[in-house]
Design a protein around this nucleic acid. Structure first.
Length: 816
RNA sequence: GCGAGAGUGGCGGAAUUGGCAGACGCGCUAGCCUUAGGAGCUAGUGGGUUUAUCCCAUGGGGGUUCGACUCCCCCCUCUCGCACCA
């Protein structure tokens, strides 16, 4: 196919030019007009596909646009290079993760450059290098010093046949993805970061994030899950002990007909000690424990339970209620014990129905009383208190406070706040991660690695097997060390850190990526952060963004930085869908940019990616659509050639409409970019302008100066989106320096106004006529005009006009 | 199951604050040009019919309003996240 324009020549040329002239190099010591544009750094999987590309293209457009606006832009890139896939590949292909990771990085870097995405590569960071993970380990030590890193037992997915720990992803339908055996739970001592200490602040400070998408904030809020409720102590029958439980619905307490414990509840063993069917209960508890971590937290599994033989006393009415154990109560939330109110909680209702437990209504539906015998589902709405003496006949909302106060007065309950968020488990029984800098000494106990001994280097000679707790366990030279305190024999922690730890602080490292004495330069970081624009996928709405916020707050408290929120503006782009599914290698529906770039050029791929739809929404990729983008760039190329090769530029002879359109387009494109990056509509506006320029071209060799100006505007407006062709055309138009150092154009407010507008006239909300009227016409004049319009007269047909609604410069509606 | 989103022509999408539904592009149709082509240019293109500023139409059903793709309620379908994929 013949090329519409020589993209294969111009694209490498300009990419080299930008690199040579250091267009994207920021001087972080100069923070005047600073703009920190950050894209989520990728995991180096095999290669980038066009779905990944969307993220980086959007970021590149923003960076270029801001450069043109005269800002001092910092736009760095790096690699989130530790992680499971590389280790899996090592087991399968006997290829060291370091080798495959670096090979992938090389390839992806080449792809990014081919896409024409500009970065300050001098600041590149890579989380799997000792120069980087030294500081990840340093962060662990800081949190440990502060008491924010601690150890406790926690469940992992365990494959009994491989004797190995599995990630949730490796568990398929409760079975090991490798050997298909049933996955169980195993309890291991693991490291946690105490994010719960920051729950309140992480929640409250969401209000500060005014430039974050609401949906991300809502998701984080729900994840943190603050709830107000009452902690109630239920005395155990035939015992001096009490079972504390937490409820957000204390108004329903009179309807508690049984109580349920999580199977891992610490009191279970003691409670069932004298029980007649002790072995049966134990078997049940074991069965629940054996379900994988995944199954347990996915609550769509069938609710199951067993009676313990014990009873507790409902402290408000002294009623004796049975105590059950079930898989639907989680130890992690609240106290691991719930008072069950089947009439007013759907899960309790289903459980009660299944095991024949009593259902008692204590909140009645106003106007349509409930009957426990015939209820089909729990009544969870508000209503009037019944069967709850002395709180009957008041609203349940009111009762919530009254009952809580009543219980506090009698010392049987206490109002408390509860959070759903759990501490961050950072231990991974893996090789390809940053080693946790901890040493165990028989004499001195847990000892942090002294700062001067960092980094704790990951040994390179390791055997990768699908069996075993962790590959590091078998590397004697790694495991055996000296206690930093007593210098005696000691062993190293063999767990590595969750990769989310690596990615929770990388945006700070970009500021001083080569510094060997500190993780970052405090002064420069305080000048350059918070990040002005963070761009990434919606799939990171909760975990990565929450962890980064947490680490930032910890650093702020430690006095390491002077701000407590890392990202000022957040933009989450939608996914690229192909054949109805998210583009991914495993689904086999990836579209590689490499061939497309070869065939159409990077600018076409960029333009199509931006044109496909509003970037915050998911979009369906179509190979056909790429051709449309290519065709358009060809049109722009030929148009510019026509103008630059014109024999004569002449004074305008009445192209006022084109001039207005040009300025309207500047306004539209600028506003669309500023308004949540609506590049798709910005592009269509430029397309409209190009169409109008074509219509305005005269057939002779002369070019109107307004046409010339319009073409120049087209090239500038397109430049952040399709930088290579724009630079080339800009040069052809006689400009000496880069288009990105020219100013983004302004529009003339007076010029964009139109003298006449077409006013739609409706009758009873239906379009019946249109009138050409002066812009800013008075209502009186307009009404007269409307009423004397022939078509309108016909529709009114003598009927009385009840009302005329005039929306100035928009429309007129007659009610008859 | 819980939490968060989305649903508009044959397709991707537009409608920014409740005010002309379908901009722009793809595809399709017809024509022009031609060195006969996967190029370029021009025009048309939601559906219906009684072909006229007519009727219907934004997942389905109801509601609010002079007016609803937009706001409210119910339902359906799809997508994402759910703490060890990153």
């Amino acid at each position: 196919m013949e090329k519409a324009y020589p993209f294969d020549k111009i694209e490498p040329k300009w990419q080299k030019h930008w690199e040579k002239t250091k267009l994207f190099s920021a001087d972080t010591s100069d923070h005047k007009n600073k703009y920190y544009c950050l894209m989520m750094f990728p995991y180096p999987s095999a290669a980038l596909h066009v779905g990944h590309g969307r993220n980086y293209i959007i970021g590149d457009v923003v960076a270029r646009y801001k450069i043109m606006k005269g800002l001092n832009v910092l736009t760095p890139m790096g690699w989130d290079a530790f992680g499971l896939p590389a280790e899996n590949a090592a087991i399968k292909n006997k290829l060291h993760p370091k080798v495959s990771t670096f090979r992938n990085i090389d390839y992806m870097k080449k792809q990014l450059k081919q896409w024409g995405i500009g970065y300050d590569w001098a600041r590149e960071v890579n989380s799997c290098t000792p120069e980087y993970y030294k500081w990840t380990q340093w962060i662990f030590l800081k949190l440990y010093e502060k008491g924010l890193a601690y150890k406790k037992k926690a469940a992992v997915n365990w494959c009994p046949s491989c004797s190995t720990v599995l990630a949730n992803e490796q568990v398929v339908n409760g079975k090991c993805e490798r050997c298909d055996s049933l996955v169980t739970q195993e309890y291991l001592e693991q490291w946690f970061f105490k994010i719960t200490d920051y729950a309140e602040r992480l929640l409250k400070d969401l209000d500060k994030l005014t430039e974050w998408p609401k949906r991300v904030k809502t998701m984080q809020k729900n994840w943190i899950g603050k709830s107000y409720g009452v902690k109630i102590d239920f005395p155990i029958v035939d015992s001096d002990d009490k079972l504390p439980c937490f409820t957000t619905r204390v108004d329903t307490i009179y309807g508690a007909t049984y109580m349920v414990l999580a199977s891992e509840h610490p009191s279970v063993d003691k409670l069932i000690d004298n029980s007649g069917n002790k072995s049966e209960i134990k078997a049940f508890v074991q069965k629940v424990k054996n379900e994988s971590v995944l199954q347990r937290s996915a609550l769509d599994t069938e609710k199951e339970g067993i009676f313990t033989g014990r009873f507790v006393i409902n402290p408000v009415n002294g009623r004796k209620i049975p105590l059950w154990i079930s898989n639907y109560v989680l130890m992690e939330y609240g106290t691991g014990a719930v008072m069950a109110v089947p009439a007013h909680d759907q899960r309790d209702f289903e459980f009660a129905k299944k095991y024949g437990l009593p259902i008692e209504v204590v909140i009645d539906r106003p106007g349509d009383p409930l009957d426990a015998k015939t209820m089909k589902e729990a009544y969870v709405e508000d209503g009037i208190m019944v069967n709850s003496e002395p709180f009957n006949k008041i609203s349940n909302v009111e009762a919530m406070t009254s009952i809580a106060v009543y219980m506090e007065e009698r010392g049987i309950g206490q109002r408390t706040v509860n959070f759903k968020i759990r501490d961050w488990l950072i231990s991974r029984q893996r090789y390809w991660g940053a080693p946790i800098p901890i040493i165990y000494c028989d004499k001195c106990g847990i000892q942090p690695v002294p700062e001067k001994d960092l980094p704790v280097k990951l040994p390179e000679k390791v055997e990768f097997k699908s069996r075993g707790v962790s590959p590091l366990k078998e590397v004697d030279s790694f495991v055996n060390t000296k206690c930093p305190k007593c210098k005696g024999k000691a062993t190293r922690e063999i767990d590595t850190m969750d990769t989310f730890v690596d990615s929770s602080w990388y945006y700070l490292r970009y500021i001083s990526p080569k510094d060997n004495n500190q993780p970052f330069d405090k002064e420069d970081v305080n000048r350059w952060l918070p990040v002005d624009q963070y761009i990434g996928g919606i799939e990171h709405a909760i975990l990565h963004l929450l962890y980064s916020r947490f680490i930032t707050k910890v650093f702020c408290d430690l006095g390491l930085i002077g701000f407590d929120e890392p990202f000022k503006n957040l933009f989450t782009q939608g996914m690229i869908i192909k054949d109805g599914a998210k583009m991914s290698k495993s689904k086999g529906n990836v579209v590689s940019p490499d061939n497309l770039i070869k065939e159409y050029g990077a600018d076409t791929v960029r333009l199509y990616t931006l044109f496909i739809g509003p970037p915050k929404k998911d979009a369906e990729w179509s190979d056909r659509g790429v051709e449309g983008a290519y065709r358009f760039l060809g049109r722009v190329w030929r148009l510019t050639e026509k103008v630059t090769s014109a024999k004569k530029i002449e004074k305008s002879k009445g192209n006022a409409d084109l001039k207005r359109k040009t300025h309207q387009t500047i306004k539209k494109v600028t506003e669309d970019i500023e308004r949540e990056f609506h590049f798709n509509t910005a592009i269509s506006a430029v397309m409209e302008l190009v169409n109008e320029i074509y219509s305005a071209l005269s057939s002779d060799e002369k070019i109107d100066e307004i046409v010339k100006e319009a073409v120049r505007t087209v090239v500038i407006l397109l430049s952040p989106l399709v930088p290579h062709i724009s630079e080339e055309l800009w040069q052809k138009m006689g400009n000496k320096s880069t288009i990105f150092k020219s100013n983004w154009p302004d529009y003339d407010k007076e010029l964009i106004k139109t003298a006449k507008i077409t006013m739609p006239i409706q009758i009873n909300g239906k379009l019946r006529s249109k009138l050409e009227v002066e812009s800013g016409i008075s209502e009186e004049v307009l009404k007269n005009l409307v009423l004397s319009d022939e078509k309108i007269k016909k529709w009114i047909d003598g009927k009385p006009v009840k009302k005329i609604i005039v929306v100035p410069n928009r429309l007129t509606n007659l009610i008859i």
